[in-house]
Amino acid sequence: MANKIVVPIKQVPETKSVKMDEKTGTVIREGVDSIVNPLDLYAIEAALRLRDRYGGEIVGISMGPKKSVKALKEAVSMGVDSAILLSDRAFAGSDTWATSLILASAIRKIGDFGLVVCGERATDGDTGQVGPGIASFLGIPALTYVSRIQDLSDKLCRAERLIEDGREILETSLPAVLTVIKEAGEPRLPTLRGKKRAKDLDVQIWGNDELGIDPDKIGLKGSPTRVVKIYRPKVARKCTIAEAKDEASVGPAVDRMCGFLADKGVLQ
């Protein structure tokens, strides 16, 4: 196989610690822990397993502010070989279209890759668009929702893809982009050895000087979509509670619940 597997990694706020400013309806970013997008960990794990089996080299890349180095170092401490951060004011405000372009440009510059392995989506934006977007910019196939990579050779990759009503076995030529789901493997924990290596490793930082993309195609300017409004969803639910603490109250509670469901018209 070609030498490299590229894994795009996103640093995201930890969902648990995301808080809303009730007054302004905006997300409070301050003091929120940043982590590696949990779904990217599956991509890292999938790449590591491929390297364990077939050899090669794994390059982690991330687009974001300088502090995203931490996410890349986490990947290195799990076993990723090297890391590149794409960081430039010109990248700020990119939507998924522009982000895909920037990542694709970086991957092209890295060169000599057989696979790009992505998480299926990020837990903050939740779009799942960047993986296929990268493939589209690179002009290579995209296999999404990959649950298992069965075989990899110099030219071909065979993988299982989980869809609504079953599993497809697909074979693609290389290079290709895969987006993987949780079944690709439980991520390994970083080791002490890995942490030491990550600590000593210099993460390369590339800006648009290195990538040379038309400035009109990146950042806010290059993004077709615009966010016009952000607001808090209305939670208009009021929970009716029925207690079923002992044998005697189970029956009445169940009756009330079934009555409620019938009223709502959700029983067949």
Partner: peptide
């Protein structure tokens, strides 16, 4: 699984904006 794969692939080719989900 189809829409979420096809649309981002197509949006890039069509130079179009895409909003997910």
């Amino acid at each position: 699984s189809t829409g979420r794969t096809l649309m981002p692939y197509l949006a890039i080719q069509a130079n179009a904006g895409l909003t997910a989900d």
